[in-house]
Design a protein around this nucleic acid. Structure first.
Lengths: 342, 342
DNA sequence: GTGAAAGCGCTAACAA
DNA sequence: TTGTTAGCGCTTTCAC
């Protein structure tokens, strides 16, 4: 391994100067810079990032804690996050927790042991206390897309207005003349997505619908779970004409269930999702959904973490990214004429 | 930050002993272990992984180079890889290259600068030379799912028999009585997937089909590209009754194209994919496909990289993982009776 | 503008 | 069984 010392020797300077050439070339005489660069090239020198991290007191690594990257939302998020991190010279560690607190804790231990200098936590079964501990050890902790009613009092949080997202879906469906609604509420991790539901329910009420017009059913963040939940829901409430799912995967499962029950989407049943994953527009019928600014949230979270890392500061602010947006596609339509069913 | 020295002081031993307690407790008197562990607990000590890496000469990080994690194959791969790595105390860095040689090179530079002690390269536009350079710097380089005809002479490679995979598809389709075939060949990165196609074509020939019975069209590893390619293909060759796509995403795009052209799958057109991503069985009609042992390849690649890292050895062997397997679902069926079309 | 020197926190001989 | 002693390769004051 070629070290900085060898480069120094060859360029007839000391290590300090080589180090400066690499990081503040303007502080070094141009000719010296030239000589050092030449030596670096000739020797094929690459700075040892581990040594650098040790000397500087921080690594160029950020960790991303998520429950399971196989959920299609995450790859989209990771892609954007990685790009932002790379732009700023950082690397991304993917930490799949499988929603297992033991795994999550193990990761936190390592990260607290200076594996990464910052960490984006997308969800977790852990209490806020354990995360605060890590933050107190000097790691930049950023909560991302947290859905608790009460945002953290000690950790910064990047999120979007989930209630508004739910409301968008409700207004759309209500505007199409629907009267009997079903809601599929996911609970991938970090508890049920109740804020999304609340936003939906509240907007329904605002549009004059009674509480009885909405039937809620709980599920998990998967296509299969959305399918099962919808089968049960439509069995119990065959008169439903509109379903809101708190995420797209469940919405797609709902459409498949409808198809299997002989219901046409959107003629017999309208379905609206939430997230706008890539599959949403690829699926047939294309899913009407509320788009979350995924890439923007990812980039913002990384940027915030890096600000904290590099500024050595901490914050507990709440950052709410751009509002969600309704994307109307093929899965929603006017409520079927009421004559068709009792 | 609590350091090893502070733990040592508190436990009234030296750093060397604390270090031993952590890594070879059997070499330390039980009571001392007790005392040290108590100190660790009381102080909330976490070993600094950066310092450890510097002292040991290697990090506990592995890099995974892939073109774009948004392609659904990769998250499935990453999930398995991360699990295997975690089991052995390593962490996974996700490196999205976007098939951009500049990005790939930048990552390699950093990795060569001891960012990671091993690297799994899934595909790349780079020549083997640049990878060999990295390997020569002491990084464990493992090629994974390489599809070149000539496997590397200097780097180990974990892969599967892509030709056999293609052949499986051909045999299935031929057995169903099809006579006019189309093939969608992807080229996500690392060049076109010609081995898959060759296996398919050769098996077709072996079953007595002439060369003219197969029409090949090139596309990219995406649903949209599979859609477009199929539109073009069916326009030029309306008599096709079977399509083989070298990956599932394109196969699904093909099914959508068929639907838009008024062709029913599998009644009018059979479609078979390759990979068996999760979406393959979730989609309707469920896709018949050749399953690749994704998780197994991932785990094997990680394991091999770690063997090299920990053993300090290198190898140039070719590891061929379990054979692919045909998964028959709903997208393939008997060739339509020949009377229906000229 | 450049060099000398003291670490960063841990590991790994080798001694004791 | 435990301690001593050098580093690992780089950064970073502080002199010169």
């Amino acid at each position: 391994m070629v070290t900085l010392a060898e480069v120094a020797r060859r360029a007839k300077v000391t290590g300090a100067t080589v180090s400066n050439v690499l990081r503040n070339p303007q502080k070094v005489k141009p000719e010296t810079v030239e000589r050092v660069m030449a030596a670096i090239r000739e020797l094929g020198y690459r700075p040892n990032l581990t040594a650098r991290a040790l000397a500087r007191g921080r690594t160029s690594t950020l960790a991303l804690m998520l429950s399971n990257i196989a959920n299609p939302f995450y790859p989209e998020f990771v892609l954007a996050a990685e790009r932002e991190a790379r732009k700023r010279g950082y690397f991304l560690l993917v930490c799949n927790t499988d929603d297992d607190p033991a795994i999550t804790r193990a990761y936190l231990e390592q990260i607290a042991g200076s594996l990464a200098s910052g960490i984006i936590v997308m969800n977790t079964d852990l209490g806020e206390g354990e995360l605060t501990d890590v933050a107190n050890r000097g790691v930049a902790v950023v909560l991302c897309m947290w859905e608790h009613v009460q945002p953290s009092r000690t950790l910064p949080c990047v999120t979007i207005d989930f209630a508004a997202a739910g409301a968008l879906a409700a207004t759309h469906l209500s505007g199409l003349g629907h009267r009997k609604f079903g809601a599929l509420v996911g609970a991938g991790s970090g508890g049920p997505q109740t804020i999304r539901l609340d936003g939906f329910a509240r907007a329904l009420a605002a549009h004059g619908h009674s509480e009885k017009s909405l039937t809620v059913v709980h599920a998990h963040d998967s296509l299969e779970s959305g399918y099962e939940a919808t089968m049960g829901l439509l069995h119990r409430k065959p008169a439903l004409t509109a379903i809101f799912a708190t995420n797209d995967l469940m919405a797609i499962g709902a459409m498949q269930a409808a198809a299997d029950l002989g219901k046409r989407v959107p003629d017999d049943l309208s379905v609206v999702g939430l997230t706008d994953i890539v599959l949403a527009h690829q699926f047939r019928p294309a899913l009407t959904t509320v788009r979350l600014p995924t890439a923007e949230i990812a980039a913002r979270s990384i940027a915030l973490a890096l600000e904290m890392v590099e500024g050595g500061t901490s914050t507990q602010d709440l950052y709410v990214v751009r509002a969600p947006e309704l994307i109307v596609r093929e899965s929603t339509g006017p409520a079927p004429s009421r004559r068709r069913r009792a």
